[in-house]
Simulated assay, not measured.
Amino acid sequence: MSLRLGDTAPDFEQESSVGPIRFHEWLGKSWGVLFSHPADFTPVCTTELGLTAKLASEFERRNVKTIALSVDSAESHKEWIKDINETQAANVGFPILADGNRKVAELYDMIHPNASATLTVRSLFVIDPEKKVRLIITYPASTGRNFDEVLRVIDSLQLTDHHQVATPGNWKQGDDVVIVPSLKDEAVIQQKFPKGYKALRPYLRMTPQPDKK
């Protein structure tokens, strides 16, 4: 059964490049990004893991832990990490799950038989501190992920969790946001959005990002 947005992310215990991991316990009160790779020593995955390592401070600033998955062994992962660090000028400090028995891949529906009967597709899940799935992106094996987009969506999720707004297409930090249509009380709107707003239509009200000075 496939996961859907709002579902509780399945817990599991699995070996990794840093030893056994019990997922929910490891995640704690952080946000999480869990992303899968078809196999070790593959070119696109090598660039992705190097990029994730280089973005470590960006993830940390957002209270996000990253964890990768491949169907190869923990020992293979450790050798692969050496290659990643050398070829990508990176320092991989996050775990890579060793999912040889496909346990996690099955829990998270990462095997798509029409794409490959054995290899995981390039799936990515953003999970919030309550262990709820907030974002699912699935790429084909040939296409590397856009981690700028992953960070952008995390920014949007964290912003909209705390303010009654939504983020428009191509939104990025500092851009105007949309006041949610369900908020109709003008006195409440003025209190929540003291910078004011522009009503392009009654349902489309733009306001400066509320957590920016």
Rank of each mutant, 00 (worst) to 15 (best):
T8C: 15
F94H: 10
V121C: 10
E58G: 08
S156H: 10
S57Q: 14
P113C: 07
T66Q: 05
S30H: 15
K212S: 07
D11E: 13
K103E: 12
F193Y: 13
L124P: 07
P140R: 12
L200R: 06
H24T: 05
K131M: 12
R205A: 11
L151A: 05
K29T: 13
R205I: 08
Y203V: 12
K65C: 02
L97Q: 03
G28C: 05
Q14S: 06
I179H: 01
L151Q: 03
E79F: 08
T46M: 08
V33C: 06
K172E: 11
T167M: 01
F147E: 04
A117M: 12
T66R: 06
I179N: 03
G169T: 11
T42R: 06
T46L: 09
L51C: 12
N101H: 08
V165S: 04
N85F: 06
D211N: 15
S57G: 08
F59W: 03
E86F: 13
F23T: 07
T42A: 09
A105S: 10
T8I: 12
G174I: 02
E48A: 00
R145I: 00
L204F: 09
T143I: 13
Y203F: 10
R102Q: 13
S76V: 10
H112W: 13
S116H: 11
F147R: 01
Q88N: 12
P10S: 08
T167L: 10
P210R: 03
P202V: 12
S182W: 14
D185T: 11
I21F: 07
A89C: 11
W171L: 07
K132P: 07
R4A: 08
R201W: 01
K103Y: 02
A53N: 14
D155L: 03
